[in-house]
Simulated scan of single mutants.
Amino acid sequence: MTTTSAGLTAPFALARYRDGDAVRLGLVAGDRIRPLTAEDLGASDLNAFLAASDWDRLAALVGTGESLPLADVVLTAPVEPRQVLQTGANYREHVIELVAAGLTQNSDRTPEEARAFASSMMDERKANGEPYFFIGLPACVVGDDVPLVLPGYSEVHDWELELAVVIGREAFQVSREDALEHVAGYTIVNDITTRDLVFRKDMKEIGTDWYRAKNAPGFLPTGPFLVPAPFIDGADATVRLELNGEVMQNSSTADLLFDIPALIAGASQTMPLLPGDILLTGSPAGNGQHWKRFLRDGDVMTGSISGLGTQIVRCVGEAS
């Protein structure tokens, strides 16, 4: 796989790349990557650096030292999170579509009435509700160098491209006003979901089963870059996913019901968010469930988010 910085607009970013059996941290600037040592970071490892991310220190290293052509290395996931928090039902238009469709099918409301009712529900939720969080397994975080193996136990594996917040300084019970002080940077995550496992069939009262639906190996393709927060406008970033060259998702984080400060503040009330953790912000309309088309062997997903580069995920069917 050829690695490029297409879509990466920041003057520099972090990435992790394969060096034989090891994985090394590097500083990406333009079409080159410079290996980073603990001495370069002023910290023992990536997460220790993110805890007090000194981006000026890294900016001073751009153009210095030995570097490699980015095209000659294989990038992997740019983060090593200890916790992965995910956000559900967080794009206003997407949720309105889902609610309105359900109302149209299950009541005598016209489509216009159903949409108006759903819109008022979402406005009320945004004003007085709370974000909906669940957790993923850090072991599912992989780079797009790893093919996405589609488990053979289902034929309804779906995509959900998302802007992911990378936590810097530890955040515990922080306010919305202080939340962005705890953001080190941003990256791309494709949150893969097996649709027919989302709801328990044996005991519907239990509700959703996110463990089985979202945590198969490789179900969180991440990266390829970790871009410093000062270079990204997380409040208005375009989230776009193409499947085999056809646009499936194309929206903006401006449509989030709960914005990034609200998500960080909300998630941090229960458990400290640690340096290097990732917080997924939700996925816009246009997933496979909407199109009635799910992932198949040979599919190629190309995901991009403003300023964060391009992620290419290749799907393979599980060997029988």
Rank of each mutant, 00 (worst) to 15 (best):
T2S: 10
T4L: 06
T4M: 05
L8T: 08
A10P: 12
P11V: 10
A15I: 01
Y17L: 03
R18H: 12
A22Q: 15
R24H: 12
L25N: 03
G26N: 07
L27K: 01
V28D: 01
D31N: 13
R32L: 03
L36K: 07
L36R: 08
T37A: 13
A52W: 00
D54M: 11
R57D: 09
L70K: 01
A71R: 12
V73S: 01
V73W: 04
L75K: 05
L75R: 02
T76R: 01
A77P: 09
P81Y: 10
P81K: 06
R82M: 11
R82A: 14
L85E: 03
T87E: 06
G88D: 08
Y91T: 04
R92V: 08
E93Y: 10
L98R: 13
G102K: 11
G102T: 01
L103E: 02
Q105G: 05
S107P: 01
E112P: 00
A116R: 11
F117R: 07
S119P: 00
N128R: 14
N128H: 15
I135A: 15
I135R: 11
I135K: 06
G136M: 07
L137C: 11
A139Y: 09
A139G: 13
A139I: 12
C140G: 11
V141A: 08
V149G: 00
P151A: 10
G152F: 02
S154C: 04
V156M: 10
L161N: 02
I167M: 13
E170S: 14
R176D: 13
D178N: 10
E181L: 12
H182L: 04
V183T: 02
A184C: 08
I188W: 06
V189Y: 04
V189L: 10
I192R: 03
D196S: 15
D196V: 06
R200W: 04
R200A: 10
K201D: 12
A213E: 08
N215Q: 10
P217E: 11
P217W: 14
F219W: 03
F219A: 06
G223A: 05
P224M: 09
F225K: 02
L226I: 11
A229S: 15
F231V: 04
F231A: 12
D233Y: 04
G234I: 00
V239S: 01
V239Q: 02
L241A: 11
E242V: 00
G245P: 10
M248N: 00
M248Q: 13
N250I: 00
T253G: 06
T253M: 08
T253F: 08
D255P: 00
L256G: 02
L257S: 15
D259I: 03
I260Y: 04
A262R: 15
L263P: 02
L263D: 08
L263E: 10
G266Y: 01
A267S: 12
Q269L: 13
T270E: 09
P272A: 05
L274S: 08
P275M: 07
D277P: 04
L279G: 03
L280Y: 02
G282F: 05
G282D: 07
P284S: 07
A285W: 09
G288C: 07
Q289A: 13
K292S: 13
R293Q: 14
F294V: 06
R296A: 14
G298R: 06
M301R: 01
T302N: 04
S304F: 04
G307T: 11
G309M: 04
G309W: 03
T310L: 09
R314M: 00
R314H: 13
R314A: 09
E318N: 05
S320R: 15
